[in-house]
Protein backbone atom coordinates (compact mmCIF):
# COMPACT_ATOMS: atom_id res chain seq x y z
CA UNK A 1 0.00 0.00 0.00
CA UNK A 2 1.14 3.48 -0.76
CA UNK A 3 -0.46 6.88 -1.09
CA UNK A 4 -0.67 8.03 -4.65
CA UNK A 5 -1.58 11.57 -5.73
CA UNK A 6 -2.73 12.11 -9.29
CA UNK A 7 -4.20 15.29 -10.74
CA UNK A 8 -7.21 14.07 -12.69
CA UNK A 9 -8.88 16.62 -14.96
CA UNK A 10 -7.30 19.42 -12.96
CA UNK A 11 -8.37 18.10 -9.55
CA UNK A 12 -5.85 16.51 -7.16
CA UNK A 13 -6.87 13.05 -5.97
CA UNK A 14 -4.96 11.20 -3.27
CA UNK A 15 -5.67 7.66 -2.14
CA UNK A 16 -3.96 4.81 -0.35
CA UNK A 17 -3.97 1.97 -2.86
CA UNK A 18 -2.27 -1.37 -3.44
CA UNK A 19 0.85 -1.00 -5.58
CA UNK A 20 -0.61 -3.40 -8.16
CA UNK A 21 -3.58 -1.10 -8.84
CA UNK A 22 -3.79 -0.18 -12.53
CA UNK A 23 -4.32 3.44 -13.51
CA UNK A 24 -7.67 2.49 -15.08
CA UNK A 25 -8.80 0.96 -11.78
CA UNK A 26 -7.75 4.10 -9.93
CA UNK A 27 -9.75 6.24 -12.35
CA UNK A 28 -12.88 4.09 -12.34
CA UNK A 29 -12.96 2.78 -8.79
CA UNK A 30 -11.14 5.38 -6.69
CA UNK A 31 -11.95 8.54 -8.62
CA UNK A 32 -15.37 7.26 -9.73
CA UNK A 33 -14.78 8.31 -13.33
CA UNK A 34 -16.24 5.44 -15.34
CA UNK A 35 -15.97 7.05 -18.77
CA UNK A 36 -12.62 5.30 -19.27
CA UNK A 37 -13.45 1.75 -20.37
CA UNK A 38 -11.75 -1.65 -20.31
CA UNK A 39 -12.32 -3.61 -23.49
CA UNK A 40 -9.63 -6.26 -23.39
CA UNK A 41 -6.95 -7.83 -21.23
CA UNK A 42 -4.23 -7.83 -23.87
CA UNK A 43 -3.45 -4.08 -24.15
CA UNK A 44 -4.77 -4.00 -27.71
CA UNK A 45 -8.20 -2.34 -27.85
CA UNK A 46 -7.56 1.24 -26.71
CA UNK A 47 -10.91 1.67 -24.90
CA UNK A 48 -8.89 2.76 -21.85
CA UNK A 49 -6.84 5.54 -23.50
CA UNK A 50 -6.29 8.64 -21.33
CA UNK A 51 -3.65 11.37 -21.45
CA UNK A 52 -0.81 11.23 -18.92
CA UNK A 53 1.20 14.46 -18.90
CA UNK A 54 -0.31 15.29 -22.27
CA UNK A 55 0.34 11.97 -24.04
CA UNK A 56 -2.15 9.26 -24.96
CA UNK A 57 -1.47 6.02 -23.10
CA UNK A 58 -3.37 2.84 -22.30
CA UNK A 59 -4.45 3.20 -18.67
CA UNK A 60 -4.87 -0.59 -18.42
CA UNK A 61 -1.14 -0.98 -19.06
CA UNK A 62 0.20 1.39 -16.44
CA UNK A 63 0.22 1.15 -12.66
CA UNK A 64 -1.44 4.01 -10.81
CA UNK A 65 1.84 4.26 -8.88
CA UNK A 66 3.66 5.01 -12.16
CA UNK A 67 1.32 7.99 -12.60
CA UNK A 68 1.95 9.30 -9.05
CA UNK A 69 2.53 13.04 -9.41
CA UNK A 70 1.28 13.15 -13.00
CA UNK A 71 -1.50 15.11 -14.70
CA UNK A 72 -4.16 12.83 -16.17
CA UNK A 73 -6.95 13.85 -18.52
CA UNK A 74 -9.90 11.52 -19.08
CA UNK A 75 -12.93 11.80 -21.35
CA UNK A 76 -14.75 13.55 -18.48
CA UNK A 77 -12.17 16.35 -18.60
CA UNK A 78 -12.68 17.41 -22.22
CA UNK A 79 -15.93 19.39 -22.22
CA UNK A 80 -15.53 22.91 -20.84
CA UNK A 81 -18.38 24.79 -19.15
CA UNK A 82 -20.94 22.41 -20.59
CA UNK A 83 -19.72 22.84 -24.18
CA UNK A 84 -18.49 19.70 -25.95
CA UNK A 85 -14.85 19.58 -27.04
CA UNK A 86 -14.60 19.97 -30.87
CA UNK A 87 -13.70 16.28 -31.18
CA UNK A 88 -16.74 15.25 -29.13
CA UNK A 89 -18.93 17.56 -31.19
CA UNK A 90 -17.55 16.09 -34.42
CA UNK A 91 -18.23 12.50 -33.26
CA UNK A 92 -21.85 13.51 -32.61
CA UNK A 93 -22.23 15.42 -35.86
CA UNK A 94 -20.70 12.66 -38.02
CA UNK A 95 -22.29 9.74 -36.19
CA UNK A 96 -18.86 8.43 -35.12
CA UNK A 97 -20.33 5.99 -32.61
CA UNK A 98 -22.90 3.25 -32.40
CA UNK A 99 -22.78 1.41 -29.05
CA UNK A 100 -20.30 3.96 -27.73
CA UNK A 101 -18.06 1.52 -25.88
CA UNK A 102 -14.87 2.39 -27.77
CA UNK A 103 -15.75 6.09 -28.02
CA UNK A 104 -13.96 7.52 -24.94
CA UNK A 105 -10.70 5.87 -26.06
CA UNK A 106 -11.28 6.90 -29.69
CA UNK A 107 -11.84 10.52 -28.69
CA UNK A 108 -8.80 10.65 -26.36
CA UNK A 109 -6.68 9.08 -29.13
CA UNK A 110 -8.09 11.59 -31.63
CA UNK A 111 -7.29 14.61 -29.45
CA UNK A 112 -3.72 13.34 -29.00
CA UNK A 113 -3.40 12.70 -32.76
CA UNK A 114 -4.66 16.19 -33.65
CA UNK A 115 -2.18 17.69 -31.15
CA UNK A 116 0.68 15.82 -32.83
CA UNK A 117 -0.33 16.88 -36.37
CA UNK A 118 -0.96 20.62 -36.05
CA UNK A 119 -0.65 21.00 -39.84
CA UNK A 120 -3.71 18.78 -40.32
CA UNK A 121 -4.58 15.16 -41.00
CA UNK A 122 -5.48 13.17 -44.11
CA UNK A 123 -7.55 10.01 -44.12
CA UNK A 124 -4.58 7.67 -44.55
CA UNK A 125 -2.74 9.15 -41.57
CA UNK A 126 -5.86 9.01 -39.39
CA UNK A 127 -6.37 5.32 -40.20
CA UNK A 128 -2.74 4.53 -39.45
CA UNK A 129 -2.83 6.48 -36.20
CA UNK A 130 -5.90 4.49 -35.11
CA UNK A 131 -3.88 1.24 -35.04
CA UNK A 132 -4.30 1.07 -31.26
CA UNK A 133 -8.07 1.61 -31.10
CA UNK A 134 -10.56 -1.10 -31.96
CA UNK A 135 -14.23 -0.52 -32.70
CA UNK A 136 -16.62 -3.47 -33.06
CA UNK A 137 -19.51 -1.43 -34.48
CA UNK A 138 -18.84 1.36 -36.89
CA UNK A 139 -16.50 0.05 -39.55
CA UNK A 140 -14.40 3.12 -38.74
CA UNK A 141 -15.65 5.27 -41.64
CA UNK A 142 -17.54 7.76 -39.53
CA UNK A 143 -14.84 7.80 -36.86
CA UNK A 144 -12.30 8.77 -39.50
CA UNK A 145 -14.71 11.40 -40.90
CA UNK A 146 -15.27 12.86 -37.42
CA UNK A 147 -11.55 13.10 -36.68
CA UNK A 148 -10.86 14.72 -40.05
CA UNK A 149 -13.63 17.27 -39.44
CA UNK A 150 -12.43 18.00 -35.90
CA UNK A 151 -8.86 18.42 -37.09
CA UNK A 152 -10.02 20.92 -39.74
CA UNK A 153 -12.16 22.83 -37.21
CA UNK A 154 -9.37 23.00 -34.64
CA UNK A 155 -6.89 24.23 -37.26
CA UNK A 156 -9.35 26.93 -38.22
CA UNK A 157 -9.72 27.91 -34.56
CA UNK A 158 -5.94 28.03 -34.11
CA UNK A 159 -5.54 30.21 -37.22
CA UNK A 160 -8.33 32.54 -36.13
CA UNK A 161 -6.61 32.95 -32.76
CA UNK A 162 -3.35 34.04 -34.39
Amino acid sequence: MATVTITVNGKKRSAAIEDRTLLVQFLRETAGLTGTHVGCDTSQCGACVVHVDGKAVKSCTMLAAQADGAQVTTIEGLAQDGALHPVQAAFREHHGLQCGFCTPGMIMAAVDMINRYPAGLDEETIRKELDGNICRCTGYHNIVKAIKAASDTMRGMAQAAE
Partner: peptide
Protein backbone atom coordinates in the same frame (compact mmCIF):
# COMPACT_ATOMS: atom_id res chain seq x y z
CA UNK B 1 6.16 -0.32 -33.33
CA UNK B 2 2.68 -1.19 -32.09
CA UNK B 3 0.46 1.90 -32.00
CA UNK B 4 0.82 5.52 -30.82
CA UNK B 5 -0.12 4.72 -27.21
CA UNK B 6 2.38 1.85 -26.97
CA UNK B 7 5.04 4.11 -28.52
CA UNK B 8 4.44 6.80 -25.86
CA UNK B 9 5.42 4.32 -23.12
Amino acid sequence: IGDPHVRHM
